[in-house]
Amino acid sequence: NQASVVANQLIPINTALTLVMMRSEVVTPVGIPAEDIPRLVGMQVNRAVPLGTTLMPDMVKGYA
């Protein structure tokens, strides 16, 4: 099963992502693939992302 990117903490709206904010986990539904974590660093979320939430492509500005 493919691992997805999951929020390791509450990520406030418009926050630029850092490695410490994300972890990989096998979840359903599948979100952004864990191998894209390096690409996500520095990108901003367009909404608040609660701890444990799977990051979906539409949550990250410029990802989709």
Rank of each mutant, 00 (worst) to 15 (best):
P29M: 12
E35L: 06
V26Q: 13
L17K: 00
V45N: 02
I11E: 00
Q44H: 04
A48R: 10
L55M: 08
M21P: 01
I13Y: 04
Q2S: 13
V45E: 01
P29A: 12
T18L: 06
I13A: 05
L19F: 14
L40W: 02
T53R: 09
T15Q: 05
L40S: 01
M59A: 12
L51C: 15
D58L: 06
I32P: 00
N8W: 07
G52P: 00
A16R: 03
P38W: 13
L55T: 01
L55W: 00
R23S: 12
V26W: 05
M56T: 11
N14W: 04
I37F: 07
M59S: 08
A16V: 05
K61Q: 10
P33D: 11
M56F: 06
T15C: 02
V26M: 08
M22I: 13
I32E: 00
V5Q: 01
S4E: 00
T53F: 13
T18E: 05
N1C: 14
A48M: 14
N1F: 07
R47C: 08
V41E: 05
I13Q: 10
A16L: 15
I37M: 11
A7V: 12
L19G: 07
D36S: 12
M59L: 07
A34Q: 15
D36K: 12
T54K: 04
T18K: 05
V26K: 02
G52F: 09
P33F: 14
T18C: 10
A34Y: 07
P38I: 06
P50C: 04
T53Y: 12
N14K: 04
V6D: 00
T28I: 05
T54D: 01
N14T: 05
N1D: 15
N8I: 15
E25H: 06
N8D: 15
E35I: 14
T15L: 03
P29G: 13
S24H: 15
A64F: 02
P38S: 11
A7N: 03
L19A: 13
T53G: 11
R39D: 02
T53Q: 14
S24W: 11
V30T: 14
L40R: 00
E25G: 14
M22C: 11
D58Q: 07
A34S: 12
V49W: 02
S4L: 01
E35M: 07
V27P: 05
L17N: 00
V45T: 14
L55R: 00
V27L: 04
L55G: 00
N8R: 14
V5F: 01
V5S: 08
M43N: 15
T18F: 09
N1V: 15
L40N: 01
T15G: 04
P29F: 15
G31I: 02
I13F: 09
V49G: 01
L40D: 00
A7F: 01
T18N: 03
V5I: 11
E35G: 09
M21C: 02
I37E: 05
P29W: 05
N8S: 15
T28N: 06
P29E: 14
A34G: 10
A64G: 13
G62T: 05
P29D: 15
P12Q: 11
M43D: 11
T15H: 11
R47T: 13
P50N: 14
G42K: 02
D58V: 06
L40I: 10
T54R: 04
Q9K: 05
G31P: 00
P38F: 09
R23G: 11
L51R: 07
N46Q: 13
R23Y: 14
I32V: 14
Y63R: 06
A64C: 15
A7P: 02
D36W: 03
E25Y: 03
R47Y: 11
G42V: 01
A3G: 11
Q9L: 07
N8V: 12
L10R: 05
L19M: 14
L17P: 01
D36G: 09
T53E: 14
P50E: 15
V41F: 04
K61R: 09
S24N: 15
T28R: 01
P33C: 13
V5H: 00
V49A: 06
Y63F: 14
N1I: 15
A7T: 08
S4H: 02
V30Y: 08
V5E: 00
A3D: 14
S24C: 06
T15R: 04
A48F: 07
T53H: 15
I32K: 00
N8G: 13
N46L: 11
V60E: 01
N46D: 11
M22V: 12
P57H: 12
T54F: 08
N8C: 03
L17F: 08
L51Y: 09
M59K: 01
I11W: 01
L40V: 11
A48C: 13
A16W: 07
E25W: 02
N46P: 05
Y63I: 08
L19C: 10
P38Y: 05
R39F: 10
T54G: 05
A48I: 11
M43K: 08
P33K: 06
R39K: 12
P50V: 15
V20W: 05
D36T: 13
G42F: 03
T28M: 06
A7D: 00
I32M: 05
V41L: 10
L40C: 03
M59E: 06
V45Y: 00
M59H: 13
I32A: 02
P50T: 15
L55P: 00
N8L: 10
V45A: 15
N8F: 15
A34R: 03
T15K: 07
P12E: 08
V5G: 05
V27T: 10
I11M: 12
I13R: 04
Q44L: 07
K61N: 11
M43P: 00
M56Q: 09
L10G: 11
V27Q: 08
P38Q: 13
P29Q: 13
N14D: 13
I11S: 00
P29T: 13
N46W: 05
D36P: 00
N46K: 07
V49M: 12
R23N: 10
G42N: 09
L51G: 10
T28D: 15
G62S: 09
V30G: 04
A3C: 14
A34L: 12
V5C: 13
A48P: 07
M22W: 02
K61W: 06
Q44C: 02
P29C: 14
M22L: 10
L10K: 08
G31C: 02
N14R: 03
M59G: 06
A34W: 08
G52K: 05
S24I: 07
N1W: 08
M22T: 03
T28Y: 04
V45D: 01
A64N: 08
N46S: 13
P12A: 10
V27S: 05
L17S: 00
A48N: 13
T53C: 02
M56N: 13
I13K: 03
A34T: 10
P38V: 08
V60Q: 01
M22K: 00
V20R: 04
P50S: 12
P38L: 13
V6K: 09
T28A: 08
V20N: 07
